[in-house]
Nucleic acid binder design. Sequence first.
DNA 1: AGACGTTGCGCC
DNA 2: AAAGGGCGCAACGTCT
Length: 582
Amino acid sequence: MGWGVVVRRGRGCRCDDAECLVMRVVVVPRPDGGGRLRPVGADGTPAGPVEEVDDLAARVAEWERVARPRWVWAATAEVYPELLRAGVRVRRCHDLALTEALLLGWACRHGEPRWWGAAWARLRGGPVPPDPPVRRREEHQPALFETVAAGTPEVDPVEALAAVLADQERRVAEVDHPGLMRLLVAAESAGSLAAAEMTHHGVPWRADAHDALLTELLGSRPPAGALPARLAELAGRVVAAFGGRAVNPDSPADLVRAFAHDGVDLPSTRSWVLREVDHPAVEPLLRYKELSRLYTAHGWSWLESWVRDGRFRPEYVVGGVVSGRWASRGGAALQVPKVVRRAVVADPGWVLVVADAAQLEPRVLAALSGDRGFARVAGEGDLYAAVAEEVFGGDRKRAKLGLLSAMYGGTSGGAGPLLAVLRQRFPEAMGFVEAAARAGEEGRVVRSRLGRTSPPPSARWHAVIERGADPGAGEAEKRQARRVARDWGRFTRNFVVQASAAEWALVLVAVLRQRVGRWAGSAELVFFQHDEVMLHCRREVAEDVAEAVRWAGVEATRWVFGSTPVRFPLEVSVVDCYADAK
DNA sequence: AGACGTTGCGCC
DNA sequence: AAAGGGCGCAACGTCT
C-alpha cells in the first residue's frame, strides 16, 4: 500500500537534532569479559582510538559516567546481560541486529541475512553468508561478533560494526519519513535494554503462594507420572458419564468418538462447542480441561523450571512478532493465566505498579486515520461507550463488537450490519483499515505508523492467486484464491493497527525506563506485555512511579502521533498482588 | 525414538 | 458468547 495511506508526517523526531550529537561507542565484547571499544561518528568514522580492555564492564561504566554515549553493538541480547550481571547499566544503545531487521523489512527484504551479511557486503563484496543461528537459552552458541570474527579473520569486528552503523544511518535517511524511522530504531533499541533489565530483575514470584494455589485447585502434588487427585476424580466422572467406556479426556479424537457413540456429533471438542452440548460428561470434562491446562502449563514443574530465588525471569524476544510485539522464549511469559497471578506478590516494603492501556487499538486507529469524528469519541475515557452513545443507541456491546470486527476483519456474529453503520459514521477510520485490507488482498505490503513493514505474501500465495485468476480456473480454484486473498487482507488490516499500537507501547516503555532511572534501586520495570507494564518499587515512591507511568503515556502519544485529540488513558493500580490489579 | 503437524487453550 | 488479528506451549497422533 502507499505509504501515504498509513503515515502522515507528524511531529518530527527529536533524534533528528540533539540525539544525533550523542557520541556513539562501538563495543565488541570478548568471551573472557574483556573487549574492544571505539568512539565513532554517525557515519561510522572513528572519533577516537580503539581501546582494548580486560574489564569491559568497568570501562563501559566509566564511559557511561562521563559521556553517556549511545552504545553500538551487534545485539543487546548478547552483550547487555553480562554487563547487568556485573552491575552496569547503560542509558541508550543502537542494536544493529534489530535495526537491520527493520530496514530490511522496509525494503521488503524480510528474513534476509541481517547485520553481518550487510557488513560483509560493504567491506568485501561477494556472496552474503546466512545469519548465525538463533541463540538458544540452553545451549552456548557463538555470539554474532564471534561469528564474524571467525568467518572473516581479516576483518576487525569493531570496523565491521562501525561500517554497519554507517550503512544503517544512510538507509534510515532514505526512507520516506526518516524521523519516524529513527524514533522506531531508538525505541526498538531502548526496548531491548528494558527487556534485558526486566529479565535481570525478574517478576517477584512467591513459590509458596503458587504451590498453595495449585494444592487448593488440584490437590497436593502427585508423585511423578500420577495425576493430581482432583484431575483423576474428574477423569473418572467423565468415564462414568460415558457409561464406563474408556475415554482419554486429553484426546480430542477419543472424545469425539465417545460423544458420537452417545448420539452427539461434534465438529471439535473445543470448550465453546462442548458448552452447547447436553450430555452428563460435559460439565466434568470442561472442568478437567481447565484444571489440566493449569497443571500442565503452570503447575509444579513450571514453577520448578522458571521460578528461582523468588523471581520469574522470562526471556523476551524484542520484535519477535511480525507486528513488532514482543515474543518470549520459555515460560510462556506473555500468557500468565489470571488465576496464577495470585502468586505475583511484591517484596515486603515494596508494591507493584500495574498499568494497562485501555482500549489501545481503536484509539490507535483513531489517531492513525485522522478521522475527526472517531478521534472525538477516542478522546473519551470509555471509547466503546462513547461510540455506543453516538451510533448504537447506547449499546456498548454492539459498539465493541463492531469496532473489533473492523480491526480484525471479522463479519461473523452479526457484525456485518454494525460495520455498515460504522462505515457511514466514521468513513475515514473505516476506510483506513479497509485500504489496508485491500492492499493485502492485492499482495502489497502495509506499514505501521513509524514504518515497520508487513511481510510480503509468499510465493505460494501468489501461485494460488494466479491459479484463481487463470481463465481456465475451476470454481474450487477461484474460491481458494478468493479465500487466501481475504485471509491476507485480514492480516494486513490488523497489521497496521496492531503494529502501530505496539509502537506506542514500545515508546512508552522507552520513556518510562528513562524516567524510572531516577529511582535507581527503588523502582524497576519488571514486566511488559503488549499494552501493559508492571513495575516493582518501594512503597514510598509508588505514587511518583504511578504518575511517571501516566506521564509516559502522554509522552508516547506525542512522540508517535504528534498533536492529536485522541487520548490514551492508562489504568494504573498500586497493589501488593498482581491478581488485585484493575 | 524422534520429527512434525494438529488440536486446544492461555494471554494481548 | 464467539469471531476476526497476533503469539507459546503441551499433548496427541501420525509418519518416518
